[in-house]
């Protein structure tokens, strides 16, 4: 049995003759936060989709919690997904039906409970616990559709957490949020990691999105790995210029990474 929560070897995803993603070897240990950085179209979301079995690789292997994802059938894949929560980049458009926030969060328990079994008292206790934990109590009975973007993201994070996952995959968890909500989400992620020891793979293009516990960074560009290692080693001034253009540098404040204009901080 592999000691790694995630293990990728020679992963290649080719679509329409174009290489979407090529990753030689990547491992993520249990309890680690791995940040996957890169500009739009770098292949970050495709990498997450390979981990959840939504995208089948053209070649190579993807092992998640000891299971070779590309070889799993529908039933085994559904079982694996109950242990791996994934928060998609695009907010769900929701339903025309006015589902309440509490009902939406309960979706996270659906797979765990199994077919033909209703959610039990313990399931609803967990749902209420996470709603409270993320400060959403007052909105629990409100329709999901009337919530703000930040509240919806928190609700989806609660949905992912009630799954009691071993791995949490996050795709741009602060996309389209203002600074207040971004900080709320990042702080929550940092606390969750400290408290639960979850393995987190976080895909983003903003350094500000990385929670304090992020040690390792994996940088993609046009489907290829351009850097991989400890955050301080990878996020150099030159790499920042390569990723985000000239005139910017990276600062470290209280364990977090911040982008700033070159003149405001000494280049690393």
């Amino acid at each position: 049995m592999s000691p790694h929560a995630i293990e990728i070897d020679d992963l290649l995803v080719v679509r329409g003759g174009r290489t979407i993603l090529a990753v030689g070897r990547l491992t993520v240990d249990a309890g680690e936060i791995l940040a996957v950085l890169g500009p739009n179209g770098a292949g970050k979301t495709t990498l997450l989709k390979c981990l959840t079995g939504t995208v089948r690789p053209s070649s190579g292997s993807v092992r998640v919690l000891g299971q070779q994802v590309e070889r799993l059938g529908a039933v085994a894949l559904a079982r694996l997904r109950r242990r791996v929560a994934c928060l998609a980049q695009v907010l769900a458009p929701g339903s025309e039906m006015p589902l309440t926030l509490r009902e939406v969060v309960a979706i996270g328990r659906t797979g765990r409970a199994g077919l033909l079994r209703p959610l039990g008292r313990e399931d609803w206790r967990r749902v209420d616990q996470w709603i409270g934990r993320l400060g959403l109590d007052s909105l629990a009975r409100e329709p999901y559709g009337v919530l703000s973007g930040g509240e919806q993201r928190k609700a989806l994070l609660a949905m992912a957490m009630v799954q009691e996952p071993e791995i949490l995959l996050l795709d741009e968890p602060t996309a389209n949020l203002d600074a207040f909500w971004r900080e709320q989400i990042v702080a929550t992620l940092g606390e969750l990691h400290r408290e639960t020891g979850l393995t987190i793979v976080l895909v983003c293009h903003d350094l500000e999105t990385l929670p304090g516990g992020t040690r390792r960074v994996f940088v993609l560009r046009a489907g290829r790995v351009i850097a991989h290692g400890q955050g301080d080693e990878v996020l150099t001034h030159d790499r920042i210029a390569e990723l985000y253009g000239p005139g910017l540098t990276v600062l470290r404040r209280e364990g977090r990474y911040l982008l700033a204009p070159h003149s405001q901080g000494a280049p690393r």
């Binding site: 109950r82 929701g94 339903s95 979706i107 765990r112």
Partner: peptide, 16 residues
């Protein structure tokens, strides 16, 4: 209920 909300989220939560 999960499918009604979003088939993508339902699949991610391990629903068949």
């Amino acid at each position: 209920r999960a499918i009604l909300f979003s088939r993508t989220h339902a699949a991610a939560a391990g629903v068949r």
